[in-house]
């Protein structure tokens, strides 16, 4: 074995890459190609025919542009909420928590030990009409006597924010943790106040983490359907809910496939716009 690798030095990297490439091919590229094939089919389950049915795409936009827009708005708000909540927290962990750093990081990741569905179901209980949160808010007259949290936009966006929070927090933590504290001393030595040192040194140096966290949060959030399904009503339905219903309930595979492609395409466009704004250098590292 050793002598084989020795004699075929040029081959070794490809052999090491092979399992990964195979994995991508079998579980991503082939299904994707099949999905593309399906998106241009017509007919009724189970007798679909490939007919270059491009109207699947135009119909999808015509019928579901509202859910598309809602997905992006919800994902966008949740991403911003994650950023605003996560940054101060991980900043504190990275610079102030000292020996307790890893414990606090564990707390951030801990919800992941429970499955996604169960975590969201827990929110169902927390926000329920008979639940403690609604009770307290009603007593404080923040909510009216019939006010609810469940089945509102607030509930869905909160659920998404909660579920994707670690994807935002961890990359930012990593980029903050790498900052040499002497850089901040140097900034203060050069007459920068704490605020200026943060804005001119800490923030730009943590930008790669913010960019990574934003992407890791926004992309899956835009395609999410669990939060809208469990915590919302049909008027909070996101594009993920539509796709899920088409695939599993009405068995309309062609429109489900075309919707999936549209979602992928629109996320890609959003990404490109984002890359333009923040500078491609930061996206590629």
């Amino acid at each position: 074995m050793g002598s084989f690798f020795h004699r075929h030095k040029g081959v070794t990297p490809y052999l090491l890459l092979a399992p990964g490439i195979l994995w991508l091919a079998i579980f991503f590229l082939i299904p994707l190609a099949f999905l593309g094939y399906q998106s241009l089919q017509s007919g009724l389950f189970p007798d679909f025919q490939f007919t270059w049915e491009f109207s699947n795409f135009s119909n999808a936009i015509r019928d579901y542009h509202e859910q598309f827009a809602r997905s992006f708005v919800y994902a966008g708000i949740a991403t911003i909420a994650c950023l605003v909540l996560a940054y101060p927290l991980v900043y504190w962990i990275a610079f102030r928590a000292g020996p307790w750093r890893n414990l606090f990081l564990l707390f951030i990741v801990a919800p992941f030990f429970v499955t996604y569905l169960v975590r969201t179901l827990a929110w169902l209980n927390i926000l329920a009409d008979e639940g403690p949160v609604v009770g307290v808010l009603r007593d404080l007259h923040v909510l009216g006597p019939d006010g609810r949290l469940l089945a509102t936009t607030f509930a869905v966006v909160s659920g998404i924010t909660y579920n994707f929070f670690p994807f935002m927090a961890l990359p930012i933590y990593v980029s903050l943790e790498q900052i040499d504290p002497r850089l901040l001393e140097a900034a203060k030595d050069l007459y920068a106040s704490s605020t200026q040192a943060f804005l001119r040194v800490t923030l730009p140096l943590s930008a790669p983490g913010i960019v990574a966290g934003t992407l890791l949060t926004f992309i899956p959030a835009a395609g999410d359907f669990i939060n809208a399904a469990l915590l919302g009503t049909p008027s909070q339905a996101m594009i993920g809910n539509v796709i899920q219903a088409k695939f599993l309930e009405s068995l309309d595979y062609p429109s489900a496939a075309s919707l999936s492609f549209l979602l992928m395409g629109s996320i890609l466009v959003a990404l490109l716009i984002y890359a333009r704004i923040v500078g491609s250098e930061r996206l590629t590292g």
Binding site: L183, A186, V201
Partner: peptide, 20 residues
Amino acid sequence: RPPYKRDVNTVFQSYALFPH
């Protein structure tokens, strides 16, 4: 008095240049 209000500047051991 904080460092930024002192009329001194420092050359740090590892230079601490701003990498960005």
